[in-house]
């Protein structure tokens, strides 16, 4: 189905989720994945913010790629990224103020995310709008997925609760047990542990999957 010579949109989309997952495979942008993931709701919204910025940045860069002079491309990328980050910041401050009060600092930090600049430089500045959007969508969803899994794991083990967002301003807190959970998991040290364990887990699955693939061929 795909056009000859290029990767299909679907593959481009899946690439960011599985093969080049920002956190579990490239180990980039670990700062928010540790700082904001002690609560499921925060993790989901942080991931959504990154998803939005990634898609918008990729689209914008891909549209204006022909008018950017190669010598000044990086400052331009940074301007575009910071522009979209500011938009996200204002939107979150307006619509999800409780989440914004917790993760606001890290929303501003999206400007410095290696993954976003990397996709702008490596992909969006060389490709047309649709593949760039697919790439941004995949990368962003991969990131959001990772943050969701990490925060799910950390909140479950560290607080024995789950804060499930049911709307922009509302959320439902599930309390699983009353005994004392593992406090370390919601502390920064636990963030590193969680990311490390999940990274090992996903790599292990990947390895098994690859092994299985080779065996069947």
């Amino acid at each position: 189905m795909s056009s000859p010579g290029t990767i299909s949109l679907k593959d481009q989309f899946l690439n960011g989720i599985i093969k080049e997952n920002t956190i579990f495979k490239l180990a980039l942008s670990l700062c928010p994945s540790i700082a904001v993931t002690n609560n499921l709701k925060n993790g989901i919204f942080m991931g959504a913010a990154v998803l939005f910025v990634q898609v918008m940045v990729n689209s914008t860069i891909s549209i204006i790629r022909k008018v950017i002079h190669p010598k000044v491309r990086l400052p331009i990328f940074m301007l575009v990224i910071s522009g979209w980050v500011t938009v996200t910041q204002f939107m979150m401050a307006a619509y999800v103020p409780d989440v914004y009060s917790k993760v606001g600092l890290y929303i501003a930090l999206i400007v410095a995310f290696a993954s976003i600049l990397a996709r702008a430089e490596m992909f969006a500045s060389k490709n047309t709008l649709l593949p760039s959007m697919a790439d941004g969508l995949g990368m962003g969803i991969g990131f959001m997925f990772a943050l969701t899994v990490i925060s799910f794991f950390r909140e479950l083990v560290g607080k024995a609760t789950l804060t499930i967002p049911t709307g922009l301003a509302t959320s439902y807190v599930v309390t699983l047990m009353d005994t004392k959970p593992l406090l370390i998991m919601i502390l920064p040290a636990g963030g590193f542990l969680a990311v490390g364990i999940l990274m090992a887990f996903f790599n292990w699955i990947d390895l098994r999957y690859k092994k299985g693939g080779h065996a069947s061929h």
Binding site: K180, L182, L183, I184, M185, L187, A189
Partner: peptide, 10 residues
């Protein structure tokens, strides 16, 4: 260390 940080009181 894991236990001391997880269960500081116990």
């Amino acid at each position: 260390a894991f236990l001391l940080i997880s269960f500081p009181r116990l």
